[in-house]
Amino acid sequence: MTVAEDRALLPDAAALAACAVASAVSRDRQSFAVLYRHFAPRVKSYALRLGAPIAEAEEIAQETLLAVWRKAGLFDAAKAGASTWIFTIARNLFIDRRRNARRSGEVADAALSAEPVDPATPDTALQADERERRVRDAIARLSPEQQAVIRLSYFSETPQTQIADTLGIPLGTVKSRVRLAAEKLRQYLEDCR
C-alpha cells in the first residue's frame, strides 16, 4: 500500500485520540489495534531514521506501542494529540536505549531511566487539536528547504551532517540554517495564534 492510499483510509486525529481513550478506559483491544496499525509502522520508520538497525527499529516500535497500551490511562486528549503523545513516548524510549547501551557494564540506575525530557503537557488551556492545526499551518509556510531542515532536525541520527549533505552546504553553516528555520517556525506559530 502506498502512503497516499493509506492516507485516504487514515483515521483522523480525533478518531485516533478516541482510540487511545478507549484503550485506556475499557482496555478495548480493537481500538488498540487501530492505534497499532497506524503508529507502529511510522515509529519503526522514525527509529530507522535515527539510525537503529531494522530489528531494533521494529523492537522500538513494539515497545512504544506496548507503552501506549500500558500508559493509555495517562493520555489526556485535551493536552496532546495521539500522534504527539506517541512521538514523545517513542523518542524517550529511543533515548533511553541509547543511554543504556552507552552505560552497559554499569549498574542500571532506575533514576536514570526516568523520563529524559519533559512530557508534552503544558499547563495552558491551548487545546491539542488547536495546537496541531497551528503547527501544521506553520510548517506549511516554511520554504521547502526550511522544512527539510526541520525534518532532519527531528529525524536523523546526525542532524548536522545530514542537513549539510542534503542541502549541499558546508557543515559550518548548518547551525545558522537550523537557527533560522527554528525562528521562522516560531514566528509562524505566533502568527497563527
Partner: peptide
C-alpha cells in the same frame, strides 16, 4: 509543547 506537537505532525 509546540515543538513536541511538531514531532507528532512529522
Amino acid at each position: 509543547a509546540d515543538f513536541a506537537a511538531i514531532g507528532g505532525v512529522l
